[in-house]
Design a protein around this nucleic acid. Structure first.
Length: 590
RNA sequence: GGGCUCGUGGUGUAGAUGGCCUAACAUGCCUCCCUGUCACGGAGGAGAUCGCCGGUUCGAAUCCGGUCGGGCCCGCCA
């Protein structure tokens, strides 16, 4: 007999039972209306004074009380219909009203003013009552089902891997779990099931997947959760080319964008962009391709320039690059100052620009540039009246970074990011090694498990640091509207190449054996070639439903300091517990 | 670890050039009235020493220093 509000439209004349929360009560003295909310929506209840028992209860009901009602679904007459809610054509004439539970006045509003994120987290159980959050939770369940269906259809086998695992030497900080059996030793919660899934390949599993909880103890961002988050982790055996992984998985992501989220794909055929090209054209390895505004290299054209800032940069082996912001000439002085600060925060010395008005370039730097140079700048950037061109003159790395960041800022300013469009791109050919500025040496670019392109030969033929930096990894990221949503690689399954890759950085066999013993050991016994990737499920879901804060797509997230302000974790523990674990802390109350 | 920014009744905001602030508005809350509202309406009422500590001043929500907490970003992280 129990019904949900949305269904009740079709039940005119029927006796139904509804249970839910009181969204609001409108007491007209001799007639009381109650908006009842459940997980499906709102229904108006009418309580009449003739029904004395129910009426006296209704008189004392307050917002967010939990009630149960029985009554008849009646059609509202024309002038009483409410077009603003789905159930506005009916109401329920209450025959029996039961109070199930009371509620104190709420610290946050369900249907009204938004509140600080602190309160949204502290009173998460109330925030979740909001229709937006209810919808988020059910959509998320449908999202998981969609993904599982796809994976099963593509003959992937779901296998769970341990949560109590080993500390991994590369990557993020681990969460450690002390061992009671082995004093002084620790498990670590996995940052990803990376090693386990590779061992599954050695174990003869053909295609593995898992919706895996991953743990990382790193500072969060608005697109990065603290602590635990979810990945669609997968791996395929007998695959030695990343293209096979990309082609197997991209139908899923396209279907999620189109069929699940109802968005438009900017490219039906997902482009492959190599890493260096992405950096040069967009100043980012995760470019948002919903808009153009590409970085234009003017180094060659300005090689003879008299303008000191540009000339210096070029002389020192750097570049001069620029972006053109359409209709940006009307930027105010203070806006430009703001963007100059942004540029400086990315390492730029300043931010030169030229505006175009009445067919003329206008700029404080124009007098340093020759007529020819001004002409070629305007034509290469395709700058028209009303546009503004910003310059980055620095090392290639810094100029790309600065202009890449500005490209994003200006796209926000000019509203160029269409929320109904999904732009996907695979970024490929990441460098196998990268220059580590701090350590002043070459180090692994990403994880050391990737296969260098060209295998052992490419490692052996590289004689210098420069040579090493030329080596590409068969590694790939999927980028979605400027967010990195997937990362994968063809794995290095050959112990000799693994040792060699570490050897070139000065790590000996013992080091590798110690850090990756289980994997290296397993690889000795007939490891098949394999490749895979992992999709960041929270982040993809966030983009698909149009959220910009990843905490809004998770039921119980932690705050920016890694604290669960609702449950009050992390928290101190009994000295008894600590003693069992052989742990001493200086002051557990701190 | 660093930069920026915010902190005012339960909630959301205003007040920021120091005095008119005995802190305003909306919403929520309490009491009463009201038989067609749906952001119901009407009358009345309670509720904040302006995050905390210190300083400047005749006088501080407002200025200064510190501190605590939140958010965004960099570092970090895939």
């Amino acid at each position: 007999m129990r019904t949900y509000t949305i269904d009740s439209k079709d039940k005119i004349g029927e006796e139904i039972e509804l249970k839910g929360w009181v969204q609001s009560r409108r007491d007209h003295g001799g007639l009381i209306f109650i908006d009842l909310r459940d997980h499906t929506g709102i229904t108006q209840l009418v309580v009449q004074p003739e029904n004395e028992d129910s009426f006296s209860i209704a008189e004392h009901i307050r917002d967010e009380y939990v009630i149960s009602v029985e009554g008849e679904v009646v059609a509202r007459s024309e002038e009483l219909k409410n077009p603003n809610i789905p159930t506005g054509e009916i109401e329920v004439r209450v025959s029996k009203l039961t109070l199930l539970n009371r509620s104190e006045p709420l610290p946050i509003q369900i249907d009204g003013n938004d509140t600080s994120e602190e309160n949204r987290l502290k009173y998460r159980f109330l925030y979740l009552r909001r229709p937006k959050m209810q919808s988020m939770l059910t959509k998320r369940a449908a999202y998981y089902k969609f993904i599982r269906d796809f994976m099963e259809q593509n003959e992937f086998t779901e296998i769970t891997t341990p949560v109590l695992a080993n500390s991994s030497p590369e990557g993020a900080r681990d969460f450690l779990v002390p061992s009671r059996f082995h004093p002084g030793k620790f498990y670590a919660l996995p940052q990803a099931p990376q090693q386990f899934k590779q061992l599954l390949m050695v174990g003869g599993v053909n295609r593995y997947y898992q919706i895996a909880t991953c743990f990382r103890d790193e500072d969060p961002r608005s697109d990065r959760l603290y602590g635990d988050f979810y990945q669609l982790d997968l791996e395929m055996s007998f695959v030695d080319d990343g293209e096979e992984v990309r082609q197997t998985t991209e139908p899923l992501i396209k279907m999620l964008a189109k069929d699940f989220a109802g968005k438009k794909l900017l490219f039906e055929d997902i482009p492959r962009i190599n890493y260096q090209e992405a950096m040069d054209r967009y100043g980012s390895d995760k470019p948002d391709l919903r808009f153009g505004m590409e970085l234009i290299d003017l180094t060659e054209e300005l090689s003879e320039t008299e303008f000191g800032v540009f000339a210096n940069s070029i002389k020192n082996g750097g570049v001069v690059k620029a972006i053109c912001v359409k209709d940006g000439a009307n930027l105010s002085r203070s806006q430009i100052d703001k963007y100059t600060d942004v540029a400086k925060s990315e390492g730029a010395g300043g931010l030169a620009y030229i505006t175009y008005e009445d067919g003329q370039p206008k700029s404080t730097i124009a007098k340093f540039l020759s007529e020819t140079e001004l002409t070629i700048i305007q034509s290469k950037l395709d700058a028209k009246d009303g546009d503004i061109v910003f310059f980055g003159a620095d090392t290639r790395l810094v100029a790309n970074k600065v202009l890449g960041r500005l490209r994003n800022e200006f796209a926000d300013l000019k509203d160029l990011k269409d929320p109904n469009v999904i732009a996907l791109a695979w970024i490929v050919d990441f460098p196998f090694y990268e220059w580590d500025d701090k350590a002043n040496k070459v180090d692994f670019g990403h994880n050391p498990f990737s296969m260098p392109k060209g295998g052992a030969e490419s490692l052996e033929s590289a004689k210098t640091d420069e040579g090493l930096l030329e080596i590409k990894a068969d590694q790939y990221d999927l980028v979605m509207n400027g967010y990195e949503v997937c990362s994968g690689a063809v794995r290095n399954y050959n112990p000799e190449i693994m040792y060699k890759a570490f050897d070139l950085l000065g790590y000996n066999k013992d080091y590798v054996n110690q850090k990756f013993g289980a994997m290296i050991n397993a690889f000795k016994y007939g490891a098949p070639p394999h490749a895979g990737c992992a999709f960041g499920l929270d982040r993809i879901f966030m983009v698909l439903i149009g959220e910009e804060n990843i905490r809004e797509v998770v039921a119980f997230p932690k705050n920016g300091s890694g604290v669960d302000v609702m449950m009050n974790s992390p928290s101190g523990v009994d000295t008894q517990q600590l003693a069992e674990l052989n742990i001493k802390v200086e002051d557990s109350t701190k």
